[in-house]
Amino acid sequence: MAKIAKRVAKTREGIDRNKLYPLADAIGLLKERATAKFDETIELAINLGVDPRHADQMVRGVCQLPNGTGRTVRVAVFARGTKADEAKAAGADIVGAEDLVDIVQGGTIDFDRCIATPDMMPLVGRLGKVLGPRGLMPNPKVGTVSQDVAGAVKAAKGGAVEFRVEKAGIVHAGVGKVSFASDALVENIRAFLDAVQKAKPTGAKGTYLQRVSISSTMGPGVKVDPSSVTA
Protein backbone atom coordinates (compact mmCIF):
# COMPACT_ATOMS: atom_id res chain seq x y z
CA MET A 1 0.00 0.00 0.00
CA ALA A 2 1.38 3.40 -0.99
CA LYS A 3 2.35 5.68 1.87
CA ILE A 4 0.38 8.88 2.32
CA ALA A 5 2.52 12.04 2.37
CA LYS A 6 2.65 13.75 5.75
CA ARG A 7 1.13 16.94 4.35
CA VAL A 8 -1.77 15.05 2.82
CA ALA A 9 -2.33 13.05 5.99
CA LYS A 10 -2.37 16.24 8.04
CA THR A 11 -5.00 17.89 5.83
CA ARG A 12 -7.23 14.84 6.28
CA GLU A 13 -7.08 14.98 10.06
CA GLY A 14 -10.42 15.78 11.62
CA ILE A 15 -12.41 14.95 8.49
CA ASP A 16 -14.76 11.97 8.59
CA ARG A 17 -14.69 10.66 5.03
CA ASN A 18 -18.04 8.89 5.52
CA LYS A 19 -19.89 11.90 6.95
CA LEU A 20 -22.08 14.30 5.01
CA TYR A 21 -21.25 17.81 6.22
CA PRO A 22 -23.49 20.87 5.98
CA LEU A 23 -22.18 23.09 3.17
CA ALA A 24 -20.97 25.90 5.45
CA ASP A 25 -19.10 23.41 7.68
CA ALA A 26 -17.49 21.72 4.67
CA ILE A 27 -16.24 25.07 3.39
CA GLY A 28 -14.83 25.88 6.83
CA LEU A 29 -12.90 22.59 6.88
CA LEU A 30 -11.33 23.35 3.51
CA LYS A 31 -10.41 26.91 4.41
CA GLU A 32 -8.73 25.74 7.64
CA ARG A 33 -6.60 23.25 5.70
CA ALA A 34 -5.62 25.41 2.72
CA THR A 35 -1.91 25.91 3.36
CA ALA A 36 -0.57 26.23 -0.18
CA LYS A 37 1.44 29.31 -1.09
CA PHE A 38 -1.15 30.30 -3.70
CA ASP A 39 -4.86 31.02 -3.58
CA GLU A 40 -6.34 27.57 -4.03
CA THR A 41 -9.45 26.98 -6.13
CA ILE A 42 -12.53 25.46 -4.54
CA GLU A 43 -13.67 22.59 -6.75
CA LEU A 44 -17.21 21.23 -6.75
CA ALA A 45 -18.04 17.68 -7.91
CA ILE A 46 -21.62 16.52 -8.41
CA ASN A 47 -22.55 12.89 -9.11
CA LEU A 48 -25.72 12.74 -11.19
CA GLY A 49 -28.08 9.86 -11.87
CA VAL A 50 -27.66 10.02 -15.64
CA ASP A 51 -25.96 8.02 -18.38
CA PRO A 52 -24.45 10.56 -20.80
CA ARG A 53 -24.10 7.86 -23.46
CA HIS A 54 -27.79 8.47 -24.15
CA ALA A 55 -28.63 11.74 -25.90
CA ASP A 56 -31.68 12.34 -23.70
CA GLN A 57 -29.52 12.15 -20.56
CA MET A 58 -26.86 14.70 -21.50
CA VAL A 59 -26.43 17.53 -19.01
CA ARG A 60 -24.89 20.75 -20.28
CA GLY A 61 -25.28 24.42 -19.54
CA VAL A 62 -23.75 27.57 -18.16
CA CYS A 63 -23.96 29.26 -14.76
CA GLN A 64 -23.22 32.87 -13.91
CA LEU A 65 -21.58 32.69 -10.49
CA PRO A 66 -22.82 35.65 -8.40
CA ASN A 67 -19.37 36.26 -6.91
CA GLY A 68 -17.23 35.33 -9.91
CA THR A 69 -14.60 32.62 -10.16
CA GLY A 70 -11.64 34.53 -8.77
CA ARG A 71 -9.55 33.78 -11.82
CA THR A 72 -8.58 35.83 -14.84
CA VAL A 73 -10.30 34.47 -17.94
CA ARG A 74 -8.80 35.07 -21.38
CA VAL A 75 -11.49 35.27 -24.04
CA ALA A 76 -11.12 34.77 -27.78
CA VAL A 77 -13.82 35.95 -30.20
CA PHE A 78 -14.35 34.97 -33.82
CA ALA A 79 -16.04 37.97 -35.42
CA ARG A 80 -15.72 40.49 -38.23
CA GLY A 81 -16.44 44.18 -38.72
CA THR A 82 -18.57 45.95 -36.12
CA LYS A 83 -18.98 42.75 -34.08
CA ALA A 84 -15.21 42.47 -33.81
CA ASP A 85 -15.08 46.07 -32.62
CA GLU A 86 -17.79 45.36 -30.03
CA ALA A 87 -15.86 42.35 -28.74
CA LYS A 88 -12.67 44.39 -28.34
CA ALA A 89 -14.54 47.16 -26.55
CA ALA A 90 -16.06 44.62 -24.16
CA GLY A 91 -12.62 43.38 -23.16
CA ALA A 92 -11.97 40.36 -25.40
CA ASP A 93 -8.30 39.37 -25.31
CA ILE A 94 -8.11 37.98 -28.86
CA VAL A 95 -10.37 38.87 -31.78
CA GLY A 96 -10.10 37.63 -35.35
CA ALA A 97 -11.49 35.61 -38.23
CA GLU A 98 -9.41 33.62 -40.73
CA ASP A 99 -6.24 34.89 -39.04
CA LEU A 100 -7.40 33.51 -35.68
CA VAL A 101 -8.28 30.18 -37.30
CA ASP A 102 -4.73 29.94 -38.63
CA ILE A 103 -3.30 30.72 -35.19
CA VAL A 104 -5.38 28.01 -33.51
CA GLN A 105 -4.65 25.46 -36.23
CA GLY A 106 -0.98 26.23 -35.71
CA GLY A 107 -1.28 25.00 -32.14
CA THR A 108 -1.48 28.30 -30.24
CA ILE A 109 -4.49 28.35 -27.91
CA ASP A 110 -3.88 31.25 -25.57
CA PHE A 111 -7.43 31.58 -24.21
CA ASP A 112 -9.85 30.00 -21.74
CA ARG A 113 -13.19 30.76 -23.43
CA CYS A 114 -14.12 30.97 -27.08
CA ILE A 115 -17.03 32.98 -28.49
CA ALA A 116 -18.25 33.33 -32.06
CA THR A 117 -20.94 35.16 -34.00
CA PRO A 118 -23.33 32.80 -35.87
CA ASP A 119 -21.97 33.76 -39.30
CA MET A 120 -18.47 32.66 -38.21
CA MET A 121 -19.46 29.09 -37.30
CA PRO A 122 -18.77 27.57 -40.76
CA LEU A 123 -15.23 28.86 -40.34
CA VAL A 124 -14.91 27.91 -36.67
CA GLY A 125 -16.29 24.44 -37.47
CA ARG A 126 -12.93 23.61 -39.04
CA LEU A 127 -11.45 23.77 -35.54
CA GLY A 128 -13.77 21.17 -34.02
CA LYS A 129 -11.02 18.57 -33.58
CA VAL A 130 -8.82 21.14 -31.85
CA LEU A 131 -11.31 23.05 -29.70
CA GLY A 132 -13.80 20.25 -29.02
CA PRO A 133 -11.56 18.01 -26.85
CA ARG A 134 -10.59 21.08 -24.79
CA GLY A 135 -14.20 22.07 -24.18
CA LEU A 136 -13.68 25.34 -26.05
CA MET A 137 -15.94 24.87 -29.07
CA PRO A 138 -18.53 27.69 -29.23
CA ASN A 139 -22.08 26.46 -28.67
CA PRO A 140 -25.38 28.39 -28.78
CA LYS A 141 -26.75 26.30 -25.88
CA VAL A 142 -24.26 27.89 -23.48
CA GLY A 143 -24.30 31.36 -25.01
CA THR A 144 -20.92 31.24 -26.74
CA VAL A 145 -22.46 31.53 -30.21
CA SER A 146 -24.23 34.85 -30.16
CA GLN A 147 -24.80 38.11 -31.98
CA ASP A 148 -24.43 39.82 -28.60
CA VAL A 149 -20.68 39.31 -28.45
CA ALA A 150 -20.23 42.14 -25.97
CA GLY A 151 -22.64 40.51 -23.53
CA ALA A 152 -21.02 37.10 -24.02
CA VAL A 153 -17.54 38.51 -23.38
CA LYS A 154 -18.67 40.32 -20.23
CA ALA A 155 -20.39 37.16 -18.96
CA ALA A 156 -17.26 35.09 -19.54
CA LYS A 157 -15.08 37.67 -17.81
CA GLY A 158 -17.56 38.12 -14.96
CA GLY A 159 -17.88 34.54 -13.77
CA ALA A 160 -19.83 32.49 -16.30
CA VAL A 161 -18.93 28.80 -15.86
CA GLU A 162 -19.77 26.20 -18.49
CA PHE A 163 -20.51 22.66 -17.37
CA ARG A 164 -20.93 19.33 -19.11
CA VAL A 165 -21.46 15.94 -17.54
CA GLU A 166 -18.60 13.45 -17.97
CA LYS A 167 -18.93 9.78 -18.98
CA ALA A 168 -19.20 8.69 -15.34
CA GLY A 169 -22.11 11.04 -14.71
CA ILE A 170 -20.04 13.64 -12.86
CA VAL A 171 -20.07 17.42 -13.27
CA HIS A 172 -16.95 19.31 -12.12
CA ALA A 173 -16.45 23.06 -11.75
CA GLY A 174 -14.26 25.61 -10.02
CA VAL A 175 -16.61 27.77 -7.95
CA GLY A 176 -14.29 30.29 -6.33
CA LYS A 177 -11.10 30.70 -4.34
CA VAL A 178 -10.17 29.81 -0.77
CA SER A 179 -9.72 33.54 -0.12
CA PHE A 180 -13.43 34.16 -0.84
CA ALA A 181 -15.67 34.79 2.15
CA SER A 182 -17.56 31.65 3.18
CA ASP A 183 -20.90 33.29 2.36
CA ALA A 184 -19.68 34.09 -1.16
CA LEU A 185 -18.66 30.46 -1.71
CA VAL A 186 -22.03 29.26 -0.43
CA GLU A 187 -23.81 31.58 -2.88
CA ASN A 188 -21.65 30.41 -5.79
CA ILE A 189 -22.14 26.72 -5.01
CA ARG A 190 -25.90 27.06 -4.61
CA ALA A 191 -26.14 29.02 -7.86
CA PHE A 192 -24.16 26.35 -9.69
CA LEU A 193 -26.21 23.50 -8.27
CA ASP A 194 -29.41 25.35 -9.20
CA ALA A 195 -28.17 25.64 -12.80
CA VAL A 196 -27.37 21.92 -12.90
CA GLN A 197 -30.81 21.06 -11.54
CA LYS A 198 -32.48 23.27 -14.16
CA ALA A 199 -30.48 21.42 -16.82
CA LYS A 200 -31.97 18.07 -15.74
CA PRO A 201 -32.59 16.08 -18.95
CA THR A 202 -35.90 14.47 -19.84
CA GLY A 203 -34.33 11.01 -19.84
CA ALA A 204 -33.06 11.18 -16.24
CA LYS A 205 -34.69 8.56 -14.04
CA GLY A 206 -34.49 7.91 -10.31
CA THR A 207 -32.47 10.22 -8.07
CA TYR A 208 -30.94 12.97 -10.19
CA LEU A 209 -28.69 14.59 -7.58
CA GLN A 210 -26.82 11.72 -5.94
CA ARG A 211 -23.65 13.00 -4.29
CA VAL A 212 -21.96 16.36 -3.75
CA SER A 213 -18.39 16.98 -2.60
CA ILE A 214 -15.98 19.90 -2.51
CA SER A 215 -12.22 20.15 -2.32
CA SER A 216 -9.47 22.71 -2.66
CA THR A 217 -6.63 22.44 -5.17
CA MET A 218 -4.22 20.88 -2.67
CA GLY A 219 -6.70 19.79 -0.03
CA PRO A 220 -8.86 16.75 0.73
CA GLY A 221 -12.35 16.11 -0.54
CA VAL A 222 -15.26 16.70 1.82
CA LYS A 223 -18.66 15.13 1.28
CA VAL A 224 -21.55 17.59 1.47
CA ASP A 225 -25.12 16.99 2.56
CA PRO A 226 -27.10 17.79 -0.64
CA SER A 227 -30.01 19.15 1.38
CA SER A 228 -27.74 21.87 2.80
CA VAL A 229 -26.80 22.99 -0.70
CA THR A 230 -30.34 23.32 -1.96
CA ALA A 231 -31.61 25.03 1.19
Results as ranks from 00 to 15, higher is better:
V186Y: 00
V101S: 12
D183W: 05
G49R: 02
E43D: 06
N47W: 05
P201Y: 02
D16V: 02
R80N: 14
K154E: 04
V145M: 01
L131G: 09
V8S: 15
K6L: 11
E166C: 11
A26I: 14
N18K: 09
V142E: 05
Y21V: 01
K167R: 08
P66Q: 07
E187I: 06
H172D: 05
S216H: 12
G135Y: 05
A87T: 12
S179P: 00
E166W: 01
D183I: 00
T11I: 04
M58L: 12
S227H: 07
I46C: 08
R60I: 01
Y208C: 03
D112K: 02
Y208N: 00
T11P: 06
S228V: 10
I27Q: 09
K200F: 04
G61Y: 03
N139H: 13
G28V: 10
L127P: 06
G68N: 01
S216Y: 11
I109V: 15
G107A: 02
G107Q: 00
V149Y: 03
L48C: 00
V124T: 04
M1T: 04
S216L: 11
E40M: 07
P220F: 06
L209K: 03
A9G: 15
I109S: 07
V104S: 03
K37H: 14
A89E: 12
G203A: 13
V104L: 04
A84Y: 00
V101A: 10
P52N: 07
